[in-house]
Structures are given as structure tokens and as C-alpha cells.
Design a protein around this nucleic acid. Structure first.
Lengths: 229, 229
DNA sequence: CAATCACTGGAACGGTGTTCCATAAAACAG
DNA sequence: CTGTTTTATGGAACACCGTTCCAGTGATTG
């Protein structure tokens, strides 16, 4: 859509002094998203940051969804780049990949809502492949591999997205702990005969570590995979 | 915010002929969302359907997020109402609840994006409690209950939301099967040395039953819970 | 009966994504 | 070197959105 010619003769990529690339635009978008939240990412704000007009951005990017998908893909790809390809044992590798995704979502909570636009992009595919390719070394037979992969990948992205939503609720006034205590308070104030379980586990909420909780779920699924062998 | 007086003396709830209730507004919003998708739910369209002005809606509803959260809550509550409180065995009950949520999301794909607004609402709490209260009868000891509950609930809502996203991509031209075949085609066209796993399981995609796949994940988690006993 | 309350509905406001296009620098053709 | 084409700009304009505001209206109340 953008890079048309550029190819053969020219050693230098940038033609004009004021020209932007799609990568620069996506980078600027991520900067705005991280600093001011998703509501603040507008084409006008982005254009201002890049010292250009809003219309120019559309030369590099199809629309806002495309921009957000590209930003999401960038972050996920970057997260995947940090994990070492074949260092750890398969089981630990799955944990490492899961946590890398979790951490990326936690650091960039705006991804949560945009997940739906990203499948099919390379970052997502990298994660899919990285998880899936660890199953055979783990001893999961051919017939069970798809179910195991599907459960893991769905859990990873589903939980990461939901956690990102929670992280988005934490801003300035409301600390994470205050939020958890508020929820715990609400639950323990529920009718104890109608909601006995929530009433009981409200106590588990304060001081909860989302990351460990996430990992506990991964371990539960891994346990299920092993017990089905 | 709305119902202030109304209480004691008056036998009739509706005072004026043209008056709407919040329930009616939410119902109309759900009708629009189901029929024309989330992009078509605007205050003006909603007002037109209710034969009123956009401003009147704000008497019953704080803002659009509130409206969407109420709509989501309505659908989830309704889904929970269909499952029988203490008919099945605990393990089957968990499956039934999970599938009820899954089906509700599948029937109303717009929920996917709005999930983040709903926690704390009664529909969500019903699901939380329904799942959690089945764990003790299942023999899960106190110390392991929170992890098991967390994994199940996160998986259920995470996967349901992602599946709703897929369902949203199926519209008119693109059937579900055509979509799966397109994805399978993309995966099998990937470089086989870089993406061996995706290349291999692309064949599993066509004819895939999302519901069964979802259930397989639930069973995997349940297996993990049991094997940890 | 007068005052208050519960609610209406349409106009108006600020802001958004997106389109359009006159312009201009770079690349290329001869 | 000269014209033409390609690549990209940046700001104006458009349609539409969520939200606010408020004069008005019918029921309820004291």
C-alpha cells in the first residue's frame, strides 16, 4: 500500500527530508497509547506529534483499526523477541512465553481491546508457533496436540486481555491494591446465603499477584495435558 | 440514578403514556446490537427506535458505557437463568455453565468487546458464584479452590470473548467455514521450516467446532484440577 | 389550586475518523 | 538539462458521534 518503487537503484531509503515511515507512525502511536491511554490516540494528536497533518497519516495506514493492529503486533513481536528460541526445556519454555505475553499486555494495557484485530499478524503467529512447537517435545501425541495448543493459547490471550482491562482501571487515584480491596469489600458485603463462595474467597483478593495467578492457571492446564497422556 | 420516588402510594408504575424504563431502553439497545452490530448502536438510532430524542435516554442511562454494560449484564443474567440450580452433578454443572456463557457470547458477539465494563455486575457475579460453589462438592480442598476457580472463570470469559470476535468476522459474504479455510490456507502457505507447527495443524482448522474446542479446554482444566488433588 | 417532580425531545457543542485535493519534492525518461 | 510521473504532504471540509442543556409537559403532591 505504501512502499511502491524504492527498489533497485536507490541506496538511500528516505527520499524527502520530512517523510515518515509506517514504522515511525506506529512507534509514535504506541508512545501516545502508553503515555496517555487509548482515548488520547487520535489522528490529530498523532499528526501533531509527528508535525504533519492528519491526512498524511492515511498514506501509510489504512485506517485506525489498521494502526491499532500494527501497534499491537509490534508490541507482541517485540515481546516474543526477548525469549530465547531453544534455551529452556519445553515445559519451562511454555511458561516463559506465556509470561512474556502477559507482561507485554500488562505494560501496554491498551492492547486488551485491540486483540480482536490482530490475529493473522506475524506477532500472533510467532506466539502460536512458539507454544505449539513445544508440545511434541513434551510428549503430547499428535491426536491431542490441537486441543492442548488451543487451550493454552486461548487461555494466554484471554487472561492477558482481561488483566489488561483491570490494569487500565488503575490510574492515579486508584491503586491496584485499593481496587482489589474495593472488590473484596463488595463481595463480602453480598448476601452470604446467595453468594457463599464469593463471600468466602473475598479474603483471597487483597494482595493477590495477578502474574502468579495467571501462571497457576497455566500450570493447571499443563497438569491436565500431562494427566491425559 | 433514575427511580427516585415511585415508591409508596402509586399502584401504577408508568406515569405518562410515552415514558420509557431503563429495561426497555436496554432491550431496544440489545435488539439493535443483535440486528445491526455494535457500530450501529448510536444514541440517535436508539432514540429513533424508541420514538424519542437522544437526550431523553440520558435520564435512564449514565452514558454509553453504562448502556453497554447493562446490555451485557442482561444477556449474561438471562443465560444464567436457563441453567438449573442443583440438577446435575458438580462436574457436569460446571460444563453446563461454561457452555451457557459460550452460547450467550456466540449469539450476541458484541459482548466480546464490552466484557471489560461488566465485572461487578450481577450477571457476572452469578457466573462467578455458580462456578465457584461447584468446586467443594468436587472435592477441591480449600487451599486449591481459588486457583481452580480463577483458571476456570478466566478461561471461560477469555475464550468466549475471543470466539465472539471471530463470530463478528462472519457476516453475509464470509461464512464461518470460508473464514476457517482462509486461515488454514494462510497457515499452510507459511514457510514450513519457520512455522512447522502451524503448517501441520492448519489441516485441523476446516470443519472445526468452536464449541467442542471450548469444551475440550474446560475438560483439560478440570483434568488438571483433579490430578492436583 | 399551586408547586413540585419525573421525564421528554430537540437543538447545540466539541470532537472524531475519514476523504479530498492543491501542492511539492524526489525519481525517472529522453 | 528538461519534462513527466511517482511518492508523499498537510490542511480544509464532511458526516457523524457522545454528550449537555434546557424549555416544556403531564402526573403527583401538599
Amino acid at each position: 500500500m505504501s512502499m511502491g518503487r524504492m527498489a533497485r537503484g536507490s541506496p538511500k531509503a528516505g527520499r524527502r527530508a520530512e517523510t515518515r515511515t509506517k514504522a515511525q507512525i506506529v512507534e509514535a502511536a504506541i508512545a501516545i497509547l502508553d503515555a496517555e491511554g487509548e482515548a488520547s490516540l487520535t489522528f490529530r494528536a498523532l499528526a501533531a506529534r509527528l508535525s504533519t497533518g492528519a491526512g498524511a497519516i492515511y498514506w501509510h495506514v489504512a485506517n485506525k483499526d489498521d494502526l491499532l493492529a500494527a501497534a499491537t503486533d509490534q508490541v507482541v513481536s517485540h515481546a516474543m523477541a526477548t525469549i530465547d528460541a531453544n534455551a529452556a526445556a519445553a515445559e519451562d519454555a511454555i511458561r516463559a512465553i506465556s509470561l512474556a505475553v502477559f507482561d507485554a499486555f500488562d505494560a501496554h494495557p491498551w492492547i486488551g481491546d485491540q486483540l480482536s484485530l490482530a490475529p493473522g499478524r506475524s506477532g500472533m503467529l510467532q506466539v502460536f508457533e512458539a507454544i505449539g512447537s513445544r508440545l511434541e517435545p513434551l510428549g503430547v501425541p499428535q491426536g491431542a496436540r490441537f486441543d492442548a495448543w488451543s487451550a493454552l493459547v486461548n487461555y494466554i490471550f484471554g487472561v492477558a486481555a482481561q488483566n489488561a482491562d483491570n490494569a487500565r482501571r488503575v490510574t492515579g487515584e486508584m491503586t491496584r491494591e485499593a481496587l482489589l480491596e474495593t472488590i473484596a469489600g463488595n463481595w463480602s458485603r453480598l448476601d452470604a446465603t446467595e453468594y457463599p463462595f464469593l463471600h468466602e474467597i473475598a479474603a483471597c483478593l487483597p494482595g493477590l499477584d495477578d502474574r502468579e495467578q495467571f501462571l497457576a492457571g497455566i500450570n493447571l492446564i499443563l497438569g491436565g495435558i500431562f494427566s491425559a497422556l
